[in-house]
């Protein structure tokens, strides 16, 4: 049982795939942390953004190797186009198609982030929302394309990543609802507190004018 170059490429593809998934998980977690203005213990605030960015570039690097080795491997027929055009691969079109989708989205995320200043905040944000869709698609691709993640310590790893992203996403949703109220918190203190002495003026154009008391 010699290790052929094909097997080496196949192992390389699977290994880099696993690492890419872990890195993507880290990127998503860091991205949520940036959005919630959190900081990593012991690090300055700008480090959260910096790490998110560097990790995403590292993830792309690993994905690139993952895709390249899979294409180069003669054992399975995967054309270059199949890496970016979903569902066009001869081998496992569905699962690889999902991989292609998530790869496309990642390219879009990175390109828009690099050109952020030029395209404006709103467009950039709209595209960046896709990241929440990208991760589950990448996970589905990983689970479907090979049996690696379905047993052993890789399964444990997958479960941990899923749990982490799930928990972080829930936190983001809850925290964002609370954040909308954060802007109102200082003002809410005024609403609850005593509104100065006297009867409340509860009409838009003023109390006395409306009752016609002043005009004769």
């Amino acid at each position: 049982m010699g290790i052929t170059s094909s097997t080496a490429l196949w192992y390389a593809s699977r290994a880099t795939g696993v690492v890419a998934l872990v890195l993507l998980t880290v990127v998503v977690l860091l991205g949520i942390l940036v959005n919630r203005r959190g900081r990593l213990p012991g690090l300055p605030r700008f480090a959260t953004t910096s790490l998110h960015r560097s990790m995403s570039l590292l993830a792309v690097a690993f994905i690139a190797v993952h895709v390249a080795t899979a294409i180069a491997d003669p054992y399975v027929t995967i054309g270059i186009a199949a890496a970016i055009i979903p569902f066009t691969s001869a081998y496992e079109p569905l699962w690889l198609g999902l991989g292609a989708i998530s790869f496309d989205v990642i390219i879009a995320l990175i390109v828009t982030s690099l050109a952020r200043a030029r395209i404006g905040r709103r467009t950039w944000r709209a595209v960046h929302w896709l990241a929440y869709a990208c991760w589950p698609v990448a996970l589905a691709h990983s689970l479907g394309s090979s049996t690696d993640l379905r047993s052993g310590w890789l399964l444990t790893l997958t479960i941990c990543c899923t749990a982490a992203v799930g928990a972080a996403a829930c936190w983001r949703i809850v925290s964002s609802m609370a954040a909308r109220r954060e802007a109102e918190r200082p003002a809410r203190a005024l609403s609850i507190g005593p509104a100065a002495d006297g009867p409340p003026a509860d009409r838009r154009s003023g109390d006395r004018a409306l009752t016609g008391a002043g005009a004769r």
Partner: peptide, 11 residues
């Protein structure tokens, strides 16, 4: 747009 993130002041 500013949400008081604070990294600008660090940098």
């Amino acid at each position: 747009a500013c949400s008081g993130h604070g990294s600008c002041a660090e940098l």
